[in-house]
C-alpha cells in the first residue's frame, strides 16, 4: 500500500531518530566535495531564533552541516549558475533556486566563516541540489560572517 504521508525516518546523532517530510530531503547526485559517497540530505531548522539550518545527511547520522542564506550577511552575493548546472538541477532559471552556504563555527563563534566558493544550490521543485565550485577572487572559502 502506498502511504500518503511522505516522510522518511532518518537517524541522526544530534536529534536522534526523526521523521522528516520528504519535501525537506534533497538529492545531491555528486554529493558534497569530500563526501561523494553520500547523496541524500535533509534540511532541518537550526537552533532557535537563528536564521541557520542544518543540512543533515540521511545516510550518515554523524554528518550535519550548518548552512545559511548568504544574502543575510552579504546582500551582493550572486552565484553564477551555468546552463549545464541549471539543467542538472532541473531549474528553469537561476532565480528559481535557493542558495545556501556552509558555515564553519570555531570555538569563538564571532569568528564564524562561510564558504562562498562552494555554495549549495537547491531546487525545491525537483528536490535536487548541487555544490557548485566557483572561480574568481570574490568567491572566498572563509568569509567572515560577522563584521568586526
Amino acid at each position: 500500500m502506498n502511504t500518503t504521508l511522505e516522510t522518511r525516518q532518518i537517524k541522526t546523532a544530534r536529534f536522534g531518530a526523526i521523521e522528516v517530510d520528504e519535501s525537506r530531503i534533497f538529492h545531491f547526485s555528486e554529493g558534497l566535495l569530500g563526501f561523494g559517497h553520500l547523496h541524500d540530505y535533509a534540511r532541518l531548522p537550526g537552533p532557535d531564533c537563528t536564521p541557520l539550518e542544518w543540512l543533515q545527511s540521511c545516510e550518515d547520522p554523524e554528518l550535519a552541516f550548518l548552512i545559511m542564506n548568504p544574502l543575510l550577511f552579504k546582500d551582493d552575493y550572486r552565484v553564477p549558475v551555468t546552463p549545464e548546472e541549471l539543467d542538472l538541477l532541473g531549474l528553469p532559471g537561476p532565480e528559481a533556486g535557493e542558495v545556501r552556504v556552509i558555515l564553519v563555527v570555531p570555538q569563538n563563534p564571532a569568528l564564524m566563516t562561510a564558504n562562498l566558493q562552494g555554495p549549495l544550490v537547491f531546487n525545491p521543485a525537483t528536490r535536487r541540489a548541487r555544490q557548485l565550485v566557483l572561480a574568481g577572487p570574490e568567491f572566498v572559502t572563509r568569509f567572515r560572517v560577522f563584521a568586526d
Binding site: 544530534r14 558534497l32 566535495l33 569530500g34 563526501f35 537550526g46 537552533p47 532557535d48 531564533c49 537563528t50 541557520l52 554528518l63 550535519a64 552541516f65 550548518l66 556552509i102 558555515l103 564553519v104 563555527v105 570555531p106 570555538q107 563563534p109 564564524m112 564558504n115 566558493q117 562552494g118 555544490q131 565550485v133 572559502t141 572563509r142
Partner: peptide, 21 residues
C-alpha cells in the same frame, strides 16, 4: 579548498553551535 572547508564544517561542535545561537 572547498573539500577542506567541507571537512572542517562537518565537525561542528555542539558547544560552539550553542555559543553561536
Amino acid at each position: 579548498a572547498i573539500k577542506a572547508e567541507n571537512l572542517k564544517a562537518a565537525g561542528a561542535d555542539s558547544q560552539h553551535v550553542g555559543d553561536l545561537s
